[in-house]
Design a binder for these strands. Sequence first.
DNA 1: AATATTTAAGATAAATTTGTCCTAAATAAA
DNA 2: TTTATTTAGGACAAATTTATCTTAAATATT
Lengths: 144, 144
Amino acid sequence: MFSKACEHGIKAIIYIATQSLQGQRAKIGDVAINSGSPGAFTAKVLGTLTKYNIVNSYTGPTGGFDMSVKQMRQIRMSDIVKIIDGDNIYNGCGLGLSECNESKPCPMHDKFSKVRAGIKDMLTKTTVYDLAKGLHEGKTVLIR
Amino acid sequence: MFSKACEHGIKAIIYIATQSLQGQRAKIGDVAINSGSPGAFTAKVLGTLTKYNIVNSYTGPTGGFDMSVKQMRQIRMSDIVKIIDGDNIYNGCGLGLSECNESKPCPMHDKFSKVRAGIKDMLTKTTVYDLAKGLHEGKTVLIR
DNA sequence: AATATTTAAGATAAATTTGTCCTAAATAAA
DNA sequence: TTTATTTAGGACAAATTTATCTTAAATATT
Ligand code: FES
Ligand code: FES
C-alpha cells in the first residue's frame, strides 16, 4: 500500500507529535527507537517533510523535531502520503495503465476506483492529531 | 497497490480469457503485445499461475495459454493477487508493523482495516469472467 | 571563542523488484 | 524421424527502493 519510506515517515510524525504534546522535541535517535524505523533513512524522510512544513526541525544541542498543535490538526495523512509517495495512490490506474481514464477504462476501473476513493477519503479525513491522540493515550502502538 | 508482476499477470489472464472465449489459445508474444506488458517477465508470472491451475499452458506449435469458462467463473481476482503478491494486502499492517493485531493496534488500524476489508471484498467478489466480459465486449481496454 | 550536539545532505551500499537472454523440453506437423 | 514452434526455467542484468556512512552546517552551552 505505502512505501517503506512513507510508513517510516508516518510513524515518525506520529511519534514526534505525541512528544510535542508533552512539550518535548524529539531527536532522530529517539524517533528511530520509538517508532521502530532505521534512523538515517527516517532522517531523510523527515528532511523532506520539514521542507514541506509538515514538521519543524532545529539543529544544535536541544535541537530535534517538533510540531505545533495547529500543525497536527491541519495536516492530514493524505498530505504526508502525497509528499512521500506521490499521488498515484489517489489517481493511478489499478492495472498500471499510463493513466486512469473514465471514458476508456481498464477492466478493473469501476470496482477499483471505488476502493481508491475510499482510501483517499480515509486519508483526507484523518489528521496527525487524530492518530497522535490514540498513541498518546496508550491505545495504540508504533512497534511490534 | 499491486506489484508490476501482479499487474502484468492480471492483464495477461484477462487477455487470455477473452481469447479463450473466442476459442483461441494465446501465445506469450500475443499476450505481451495485447496486454502491453514485457513478454519474458509476463511469461514467468504465467508460469507461476499455470502451476496453480489458474491458466493452462501447452508447448509446441498450436500451443499457448488458455482458460476454460469454468476456470474463468471460479477464479477470483483475490486468488491471483494472493498467488503473486502474497496476502499482505489482505492481512498486513498499514504502517508495516510485523503483524496487524486488533488488541494492540497501530494508530491507523481502525481506519485502515476498514479500507483493507473493502479491497479484499472487491477482489473476492470479482471473477476473471467478470473482467474478461467487459474487455470482450469492447467496453474496457488493456493498453493506454 | 571553543566545544559538543544535532540536523542537512550527498555518496555509497545492500536488497528487492523488474526485466532480458539463452538453452532445454515438449509437441504438432511435415 | 526431422523440423519448426512454443512454453519452462535458470542465469544474468538493469532499475528502483531501502538503508548506511560520512562530512558539513547550525547552534546552544561552557
Ligand atoms: S483505468 Fe484502470 S483504474 Fe481507471
Ligand atoms: S495494526 Fe496496523 S493496520 Fe492493524
